[in-house]
Amino acid sequence: MAWQFDNERPIYTQLLEQIRFLIISGLYPAGSKLPSVRDLASEASVNPNTMQRALAELERSGLIYSQRTSGRFVTEDGVLIKQMKESIGKEKILTFLHEMEQLGYTAADSVVLVEKVVEEEIR
């Protein structure tokens, strides 16, 4: 996976989001061991201290935990991962609805359009 960063926001927040995405999408499954800070930093081509900070934030959110000698792991709490997934999904929908609103669609119109597009896709 290529790690991309935009210019407006801190790098650690962007790292945090991308790792969270990897967990939610199942690439780092529940209970699995994460690569070391060094390896992750090297993979993302970022400063190890920045990666460390992102992981510390993720630990605070409960999505990952560290075991003193054996490294960091993804939480085994499937419910938490699901909740996280839903809240990110909701965020994306809100952004989408906001953009649609700027195009002149009400929320209800947007839903109708979404349904139409989904139907066409299936066909």
């Binding site: 210019n7 407006e8 926001r9 801190p10 790098i11 400063n47 920045t50 900070r53």
Partner: peptide, 14 residues
């Protein structure tokens, strides 16, 4: 670097 991005909403380059 991240304090600059946080406080100025722009990269160090900008």
């Amino acid at each position: 670097v991240d304090d600059i991005r946080e406080n100025h909403q722009k990269s160090v380059d900008e």
